[in-house]
Design a protein around this nucleic acid. Structure first.
Lengths: 198, 198
DNA sequence: TTAAATAATCTAACACTGTTAAACAAAGGT
DNA sequence: ACCTTTGTTTAACAGTGTTAGATTATTTAA
């Protein structure tokens, strides 16, 4: 009966292998170069076998996206743990967000890219919502009680996200801009919004 | 000898038809549904003749992108002409940018989408640079002379763009946010940056 | 007007893509 | 040993961008 477990473990392993191979290809050649046959080649199987583990290609991308959000959430957790002042924590969280975007560039593109299938976003599984909630909660914490309405927190959250995400996407298409300029704008924007909301 | 001109006019016409058909398909089914055979169907030809007018599919997308930037530039020109105060002009320009993004959603995605081929951006033909220059110049105009260094203008330009583009992309993936909230954040951000830079 | 040359257009194919159905092989249980 | 289930592959379909060759239509020259 233990062989059942071994086989389940093996199945799980090739599932993991599929995802690992996918992420490898995406990192090497960009996510538009990801093909079922290329994945199959890398895990030394033929393409149809992948459909035993994932419904289709989108399901693979969805899973990668989910894992990306989990990773981002963990990085934010670390950022929080390294500071005590809420404002410092929030800043560290956004910088973690920024660093993640460039450390896992292709990942970020799949996670936030305009081109992604919108259905994935509508599902909005908890893992995907987690980083957003972490930021939302921290923003709420910083805003003084007398201003703290849901709408106000929302506004600030979207302002933050817009600035950071906008800056990231602009830097992904045009790499010409200097890193100092970027960090300058980023830090300025973050501290600006933080001071403005308390 | 006038027949030569007629023929050239006809050639130009089918070139225009190809672009018109493309934009139609893109608007109807999104830019990922654009295929050479679908274009050919729409202009009542077969696929290979498109290659008489465009080197490949990317060339078509590039041309559409160029035309998008031209259109955006014109809209900005109108925005300028409708105000006299530079700060009002700049605000109107960004709002024109915002409106363009949603009026020509697919266009904007092709123009600024993270997924686009980066080579198109490296070429950076004048038409593509035009709207950027218009904004840059207007920002420069508003900044008082004592602060007016190239780096400072750059910083402000990128801050603007980040906020607006970020807000746009976020709203393109998630439509849930209320329009009032968006306009609020947009106007707040624009006036905020404007007051901060003079 | 007819013949040759040129231009315009299409057919067919190649090498890909995601995806599915059917065939096959290997293992397990009875 | 047989049957069933599971894992895996082969072959195919419909679609993609793109190109070479054949075909048709038009213009030019004799």
């Amino acid at each position: 009966m233990a062989s059942k477990e071994r086989i389940l473990r093996l199945k799980d392993e090739t599932r993991t292998n599929i995802l690992a191979a996918s992420i490898e290809i995406v990192k090497e050649e960009g996510w538009q170069a990801l093909s079922m046959r290329k994945i199959a080649d890398k895990i030394e199987y033929t393409a149809p076998i992948i459909y035993e583990y994932f419904a289709n290609k989108d399901a693979i991308l969805n899973e990668l996206t989910r894992q990306g959000f989990v990773k981002l959430g963990n990085l934010m957790q670390v950022a929080i743990s390294e500071h005590s002042d809420p404002a410092d924590q929030l800043e560290a969280m956004w910088i973690a967000y920024w660093n993640f975007a460039f450390a896992e560039k292709e990942m970020y593109q799949v996670m936030y890219g305009v081109e992604m299938n919108c259905c994935a976003m509508q599902t909005m599984c908890p893992d995907i919502q987690a980083p957003m909630n972490m930021l939302w909660d921290k923003i709420e914490e910083i805003i003084p009680v007398e201003k703290r309405t849901e709408e106000y927190v929302d506004t600030k959250y979207y302002t933050f996200w817009s600035v950071v995400h906008g800056l990231i996407s602009i830097n992904m298409t045009r790499k010409s801009t200097s890193d100092e300029l970027n960090k300058q704008v980023l830090k300025d924007a973050i501290t600006g919004i933080i001071t403005s909301m308390r």
